[in-house]
Write a protein that binds this DNA or RNA. Structure first.
Lengths: 187, 187, 187, 187
DNA sequence: TATGAATGAGGGTTCATTCAT
DNA sequence: CATGAATGAACCCTCATTCAT
């Protein structure tokens, strides 16, 4: 995904707007206002609003790179989670929208994209879970799809709490604590 | 919370609209259309749109009744979760909005209400967690706020998956499986 | 003009509403709210809103009774003015609307009524002016219609200032001072 | 105050609407209709309706230029009055709203603006009155605030009569007659 | 690459009024 | 004498988008 400078600026502004006042604040007018250009100018860089949102989603999905080669088992899972946490820490506005799939329910193209991304992640992660079960890092009496929920449910909630509390607590400390708790209880 | 018949009808219609097409579908016009009355008629029953949404939220919060007397410890937590699951099963549209606090970010009155409700629940639940730790149902080396996330993160994710998959799996079976998994791993 | 009790209550409430927040505050809804009845109930007492306003206007015109018999010349004029001032002092809300004919521009029936009343007053008053000129109380080198403006322009402005200042000064003192000034300068 | 062409056109149309049918006729819809554009187009030129009205008020206040340098005493007053009369003659629609402060009672921002302008005028004019008293043009036994009313009350009433009569008489002749009458009686 | 001006669709809301009860 | 429920018309305003320049 190669974006022009302007495109990156627009994505950045869009994210800020969403974080500040919810998805309703993300309008072409506000976007233009924030970038100090006029509304039609936006359309030089994106075909329409949906494309902006979709590009935003894709861009932040690119940020999570956990190649299945470098890590294995629970380490792979931890790497994935840490990658997400690092991303959210770097761009706190993300915390408010990253796991809010409902926000995009009314745009079919966005919904579809999100579903596809989620599916891809799930596949990657289930490989890790299997490895972890086989190596004895994780007990074997819990179905894979429950494992997925037991691990990523808490992560999502943590990020959401951090976003809704306006970053009042130390996200990375709290996430490390959570990871070690997960390691403990799943053994 | 005593609502008139019409008010209940309006709330019901509002929920359906949201579930069908996201919060953007929840407009006074659509609401009126669904009820086959005119838009101004809505305003005889609610002062404005925000009041409709807030009433909707309150109504479904009323549905979760877990008195601290009847249950204790992990049973209290399980009761709370089962109550939620039952509610969502009965009104599947709920699954798509119940844990989507972001949807209401742009309405300060709604946001505030949601925060208050979440706070109340957290307080109730932390009592249960403490009891469970003291009675030995739950290990003591995990901080309360992590416990909260470890339990309710997965529940939220489960409900969300069910909603986004259009109720493709058996929610109550899956939730029972999750509960027993939680019981196991937290001991 | 004989009004029922309820009608008088409605007129009174209407006047208060107008005084508090301008003519836009005078709505059937607000009227009903102030009287703690429902909107349709208003229509038991008046055929429509215009009739309410017209009745209001007529009622307060009835309050100014200056028979041409009891007074003559400048005394007649002074009596008329004092009568107005007394009325406004008794019902301060009046000050904000009494001379604001523009408020009713959009209701032809009201406009017409107002014009008729103004015409009647002018006729009465011109008789007084003529008498005053003939008796030497007022100089004769000023045309009647200018005299009318020179006397009632200031009175209107005085009342308006009193109303817009929220009755900050002593209206009757100020009006007496004005009357004596008028007597002086017109001789 | 520099306005774009379109802004001037809008203000002009707004004034016409008000003059034709009272303030209730001044709606965005009518405004758009008169200019043969759509309603949203209006909002490219003004932020909202209140801003239109306020600009209208300011624009016509700009028209009254009486520098304290060129005139002194009663001449200053006469200049101010003549300036107003000229303005109203040029734009007869103004006559119906220029002195109708009540029309804007329901818009706090307009009310405030009007009060500020009125205050500024009063200050300018009281300087003239003082000069006139000191130079012997106006008798000294009448308080300043009464003088203000005695002079501007009649002017306001004259303009209002002209407006409400649909310009049936010769405003400038009548105003000159009034000015000379005022000069006579105030000496 | 940007702008100024406009548009069609739709948003939430308030109005005076009516009607059956 | 009053109500509950509704209506049609109109209100102000914002949306994403387009087009000529």
């Amino acid at each position: 995904m190669t974006l022009t400078n302007r495109q990156n600026e627009i994505i950045e502004a869009a994210l800020k707007l969403m974080a500040e006042g919810g998805i309703r604040e993300l309008t072409i007018k506000n976007l233009a206002g924030k970038l100090k250009i006029t509304e039609p100018a936006i359309y030089r860089h994106f075909r329409n609003k949906s494309e902006i949102v979709r590009t935003m989603i894709r861009k932040f999905d690119d940020g999570v790179d956990v190649s299945k080669e470098t890590c294995k088992g629970f380490d792979g899972i931890a790497a994935f989670i840490r990658s997400r946490i690092r991303q959210v820490s770097a761009t706190p506005s993300l915390a408010r929208v990253m796991f809010a799939e409902e926000l995009f329910l009314d745009d079919p193209e966005c919904s579809e994209l999100l579903l596809a991304l989620m599916h891809r992640h799930k596949e990657t992660l289930e490989t890790f879970f299997l490895e972890a079960q086989n190596s004895g890092e994780i007990r074997k009496d819990i179905p894979l799809r429950q494992l997925f929920r037991l691990v990523f449910g808490p992560v999502r909630l943590l990020v959401k709490q951090w976003g809704m509390s306006n970053q009042k607590f130390d996200l990375s400390a709290e996430s490390e604590e959570m990871l070690s708790a997960l390691r403990k209880i799943l053994k």
